[in-house]
């Protein structure tokens, strides 16, 4: 009944990966931290967009805004 895994370094490595306490936390931190960094960067990018030298301001996207999309 007992599952005997083949003696394969890859399988041993994968088992070590899932079975070692702490690695899960590192992975969670990487995922969480990565998302936070990406979100922060995106928000900065959007905010920085305000520095472009464009006189028009739109309260909401209008066809006038989108018609220039291909050129801008």
């Amino acid at each position: 009944m007992h599952l005997d895994y083949p003696d394969n370094p890859l399988i041993e490595f994968l088992y070590w990966l899932i079975n070692t306490p702490g690695l899960g936390g590192i992975m969670a931190s990487v995922v969480g931290g990565g998302i936070l960094l990406a979100v922060g960067a995106t928000l900065r990018w959007i905010s920085k967009g305000g520095q472009a030298l464009e006189p028009e301001e739109f309260a909401y996207p209008t066809p006038a805004l989108h018609s220039h999309e291909d050129t801008g």
Partner: peptide, 13 residues
């Protein structure tokens, strides 16, 4: 057990 279900699910070891 040789294949204990309890150990597999423990989140903290």
């Amino acid at each position: 057990c040789e294949d204990p279900p309890c150990i597999k699910v423990c989140p903290v070891g």
